[in-house]
């Protein structure tokens, strides 16, 4: 494997390796520490004895102490609902921007891009008022609604659709396919990697989102995991750190495990989403 003329050699390389590893260990340390705490009895929370007994008790306590099953369910429903709506709406809008001539297209596109800067995250006061007017406060729909028309998704898919050769489009039309059929049979299959990338970014964003769900939900039936975790961790002073850490790991576990299993796809998805 050719490393190029500027790969470090000798002492410089050793130094670089040591530096990289120190940084790596420093970076993984908080998580490693959390895992240690969660899997050991609380008296070992800050005592690092290799012979400390392993236990799942902290997880059992956490699971029993709050309706985490319901929170998991809510978060999954939320992520699925947002993603399904985003994929549908953004595909149609991106297709319009990429392949249709219409009056006001450029201005409309600029207006869409505004959302890349002014995200719903900062418009909490007015969006709360809107949800109140619609009468859907404290519903999962209200958490997801502001994010369903995603400028990011429209932008990403528009770029992808624009790269589809016009000949493919025309060939399908000659065979008598309508506009939506062409979209479904030509454009969507070709954009599959972009859909996967967008899906991963979207799900991890909404799995982790906190402030807006905190504001708009008020009951166990609607709260996502992040809000449930926070209520669990802050209300009861009597709960010890090992249990809170176990709950914390539990709520992040699906994403973390998914990331470990599909590391390459994750990293490439985030890369793809960033290169515009």
């Amino acid at each position: 494997m050719n490393e190029g003329p500027y790969a470090a050699t000798g002492a410089a390389r050793a130094l670089e390796t040591v530096g990289a590893w120190l940084l790596g260990i420093l970076w993984i340390l908080p998580l490693a520490y959390a895992i240690w705490t969660a899997f050991h009895p609380s008296e070992y929370a800050v005592r690092f004895v290799p012979t400390a007994p392993l236990t799942l008790e902290n997880f059992a306590h956490a699971w029993a102490a709050a309706p985490f099953a319901r929170y998991f369910f809510n978060t999954i429903v939320l992520c699925a609902m947002i993603l399904a709506a985003q994929l549908f709406l953004c595909t149609l809008a991106a297709y319009a921007f990429a392949r249709f001539e219409f009056r006001g297209r450029e201005i409309a596109f600029l207006l869409v891009l505004v959302q890349l800067m002014i995200m719903p995250d900062v418009l909490i006061v007015e969006n709360y008022r809107t949800m109140h007017t619609l009468g859907i406060l404290d519903t999962i729909l209200a958490i997801g609604l502001p994010y369903m028309g995603s400028a990011f998704g429209i932008f990403l898919l528009r770029q992808t659709f624009k790269m589809v050769p016009k000949e493919l489009d025309e060939a399908a039309r000659v065979e008598g396919a309508g506009a939506l059929e062409v979209l479904w049979k030509v454009y969507v299959p070709l954009a599959k990697p972009v859909y996967i990338a967008f899906g991963l970014v979207s799900v991890s964003y909404h799995w982790n989102n906190f402030l807006w769900p905190l504001i708009v939900t008020n009951s166990v039936e609607t709260r996502p995991l992040t809000v449930g975790l926070q209520i669990f961790a802050s209300v009861d002073q009597g709960i010890d750190w090992s249990i809170i850490t176990a709950a914390t790991l539990m709520t992040s576990a699906p994403l973390l495990v998914g990331f470990l299993l599909f590391q390459r796809q994750f990293v490439q998805s985030f890369m793809r989403a960033g290169i515009k």
């Binding site: 970076w27 991890s204 906190f210």
Partner: peptide, 11 residues
């Protein structure tokens, strides 16, 4: 390096 990115900020 990348793992903290996947964790929720709340966690």
């Amino acid at each position: 390096y990348f793992t903290p990115t996947v964790l929720p900020m709340i966690a």
